[in-house]
Simulated assay, not measured.
Amino acid sequence: MTENAPHFMPTFADIVAYSDKMHALLDTAQKFALLNAPLLIQGETGTGKDLLAKACHQHSERRAHKFIAVNCAGLPSEDAESEMFGQAKGDKTSIGFFEYAEGGTVLLDGVAELSLPLQAKLLRFLTDGTFRRVGEEQEHYADVRVICTTQQSLQYAVQQGKFRDDLFHRLNVLTLDMPPLRERQPDIQPLTELFIRQISQKLAILPPQFTPELMAYLQHYPWPGNVRELYNALYRACSLAEHQQLTIQGLNLVENSAPLSMERQSFSLDLFAQKTLEQIMADYEQQVLSAFYKKYPSTRKLAQRLGVSHTAIANKLKAYGIGK
């Protein structure tokens, strides 16, 4: 779920952005939206990459034309090329989604899922807009803006031999990095209020209320599933609300879930995207402190439990916005 209602093409004004990171992101996105070069939007699952792509389309001069979203992982391998570029077979000719979106925007969601042969054909198309339908020698041209999204590091995929180096450098020019929800604390309450209104309309109920304790819980939860997980948790809680009151139990969130969990057997560098070691350690430290603070809500007790000074703990809690 994104931050917009179904069948609604959002603008930048529809994106919740009270945090500094989202303010900076939208400032850059509005400038990139006016250009025609390929745009790459990176971010963890559930951060709203598709929402940002739609807003970029709506802000561009292509807004009156089609916006086509394609799930790259869902393209059937045997028909993927004809889906993209069309096919000529005997007297029958079909067009692909690039040709269909003439004048508009094509969103390639999960571009890293494309096969290497398709990546080569995409690179050629991005270079000059030309392509050939499957079964034809004639060249065609389509005027579309291509936006790609990925939740994994393309640079890491290049190192693994799963993504073409030349395509990576073609895409890695205009890039936008969606911050995870755990780095958007000022956005959590307005997102919660927005989602409760949307969900209540869907369920045909009065909007439930929430306590300061529940909001504090939402703000300290690490949100491995990001904005999508917040929406889904609130949907469940609204469905179970009694006396128009949301409860923490109704959210049904897993206490020990964390996107940087070192206990996972399938530990993957893809989890860290383009982050530096300092950013990775800061993210994990914040999650650890958030979890411990729920059990040790006193800074002195928490400092004693973790074996550090009271001053050090107090400074870290303040820096991460944990507690009062």
Rank of each mutant, 00 (worst) to 15 (best):
D187H: 06
L118D: 05
G103N: 02
T276N: 11
C148W: 07
A24T: 15
T105V: 00
R264P: 03
V106T: 01
S82E: 05
A273Y: 10
Q244D: 14
S94W: 01
L176V: 04
K275Y: 11
L271I: 07
Q152P: 06
N315S: 14
Y156D: 08
T299R: 04
L302N: 00
K21C: 14
H140C: 14
E278D: 15
Q189T: 05
Y156Q: 08
V16Q: 04
I322F: 07
P10V: 01
L122K: 01
L306H: 13
S239C: 03
K121Q: 08
N36S: 15
R228C: 00
L122P: 02
F168T: 00
G74T: 08
D177N: 13
D166L: 06
L51V: 11
V173W: 04
M215V: 01
Q159C: 02
E213L: 06
P179G: 05
A55L: 06
G323K: 04
Q265D: 11
E285Y: 10
T45W: 09
L52W: 00
A241K: 00
I147R: 07
F195S: 08
A112D: 04
D79C: 04
L260H: 09
S153H: 05
H59T: 15
R145L: 05
G129P: 05
I280M: 14
K31Q: 15
E78T: 07
N172L: 00
P186G: 12
L240D: 03
R133I: 05
F12Q: 05
L40G: 13
H310R: 06
A55M: 01
E193A: 13
Y293G: 06
L167T: 02
G129C: 03
R62Q: 13
T130M: 11
L122V: 01
D187L: 02
A319L: 11
E136G: 13
Y100K: 04
P6H: 05
E213R: 09
M9H: 05
R145S: 08
R133V: 03
Q189H: 08
L317W: 09
S77W: 06
Q209P: 03
R62N: 15
H23K: 15
Y235D: 06
K92E: 07
D20T: 07
T93E: 10
K324S: 11
K54G: 11
T11Q: 02
A5F: 01
D143R: 03
P6L: 01
P297I: 00
R197S: 15
K49E: 09
L269P: 07
L253G: 15
T47K: 12
L122D: 01
V254S: 10
M262P: 10
H310W: 11
S153N: 14
R133G: 08
C238S: 09
V288T: 13
T192M: 14
V111F: 01
L251Y: 11
Y235Q: 10
N252I: 07
Q198L: 10
I147Y: 08
K162T: 09
G74C: 12
G321N: 06
Q119K: 03
D270Q: 13
E61A: 15
E44A: 13
L108E: 07
C56H: 05
E137C: 11
Y284W: 12
